[in-house]
Design a protein around this nucleic acid. Sequence first.
RNA 1: CGGGCGGUAGCUUAGCCCGGUAAAGCGCCUGGUUUGGGACCAGGAGAUCGCGAGUUCGAAUCUCGCCCGCCCGACCA
Length: 485
Amino acid sequence: MAVSEEQDYVKHITKMSVDFDKWYTDVVRKAELADYAPIAGTMVLRPLGTATWDAIRRAFDDLIAESGHENWIFPLLIPEDVFMKEAEHVEGFAPEVAWVTRGGKEELAVPLVVRPTSETIIGTIVRKYIQSHRDLPLLTNQWANVVRWEMRTRLFLRSREFYWQEGHTFHATPEDAQSEVLQILDNYREIAEDWLAVPVIPGRKTEVEKFAGAQFTNSIEGMMRDGLALQMGTSHYFGQNFSTAYDIGFTNRENRRELCYTTSWGISWRLIGGLVMAHGDDSGLVMPPRVAPVQAAIVPIFRDEEGRESVSRFLTPITAALKGRVRHRVDWRDSRPGDKYAHWEVRGVPFRIEAGPRDVEAGQVVLVDRLSREKRPVPAARLADRLVDELKAYHEALFERARRFHAEHTTHPQTKQEFRDFFENGNGFAWAAFCDRTECELELKDQLGGVTARNKPFKVDGDFPDRCVWCERAATTVAVFARAY
RNA sequence: CGGGCGGUAGCUUAGCCCGGUAAAGCGCCUGGUUUGGGACCAGGAGAUCGCGAGUUCGAAUCUCGCCCGCCCGACCA
């Protein structure tokens, strides 16, 4: 049934087609994922957002545990002199660092920076645990909050304090470190695609976009429903940049001292913003089922106390069968069914189960999914099995929908004119031949209103011209261009 | 950080220009009636008008400073 304008107004969710940015903010707040906090540029993660982040966290933690990574907890504060050792890194982060200069009433002799990322302090700390090649690789990870004094903030996507995981690893050889970087990037791809149902492009960052202090940076890039790119995870190779600055060495098999090859990598709660913008619609959130805190909301329908008890008895074996298999919630709140439908819809719950007198009579429930809203009767005894299958299919459908959108908003311009036209008339991804020169990328960014090379994809199909799509010099690579968050 | 706009009940806003101690819808509470797509009726609670100072007999309203948000720019692993 179509939703009237008046009802929309009551819900206070701006339509995506009217103003995408406003729609996004409305959804995040009305779905109660997160809200603004009273400190500029910071936010509070509400229970739905926290549960979603926890689900992502568990999924990734399991993945990296399998490959031998261990969680640590490192300090929040970094002494200035420790922070300042790697020049490029300092230059990249200095403008957005928050400082602690006082403890109680005393001015600190050495000011402390609130970590914007932890390469420097972790390097400083773990160097003493690394003596021999036998101590390598050392594979650390921490789940933490960091602070970056951003000028322009946005819920989940760019906040002054954010939660993430940062992995920091130390290796005996460049090959080992580089394969770590690739392996983690593939773990990130798995989180994005298999858990969040967002198709992504893995690739190598250009010099303009790489991490401050890295030799190279890899990323996965996803497309939001406004055609903008979102960097959903990055994985950096430092070579010996940090181990030189922080003197992180080991004794190799030849009994000679050598410096470690290091990496770092991170995903943040930005992924939640990503799933909102990749899947949401004018009714609110659409949660990917594998991370959805509630996968099925059960709405009991009854007229009186007797009816209530009858539905309750009917539901007892049903919820018992769902236990441990499907994350569900029975909505006994004292309000009308329609109100409950809307409640769970805004929150993006994949499935709704209606159970009323007619269902009790027939020994069935009515299953409704968030995407099609079609009502389908399911025998009560088969609900659990059915839902497990439906959740899988729902994930596939979501992923497929996002994949199709991504494909429909992707182009392969052959000429500079086609390239210009594409970005002057809208947004999306443009795969094009590229000279990979910084000057060229900066020029096109300037002239095309913020278009940048998101990355140079690892996998490129088809033929591309041998001239750069922008400067028309010899092309050395293929890059995906887009405006980005 | 520069330019512009805004902040009034939990939410969305009116009132501000032209000063006289705050209003509506939604939400919330109680009772009744209802319940398969955001119900209805009646009653009720809820606001130091973002914070602070100033002008004034009197400030939501005028002035100044600060805080928070939005848009544009600069900036942005």
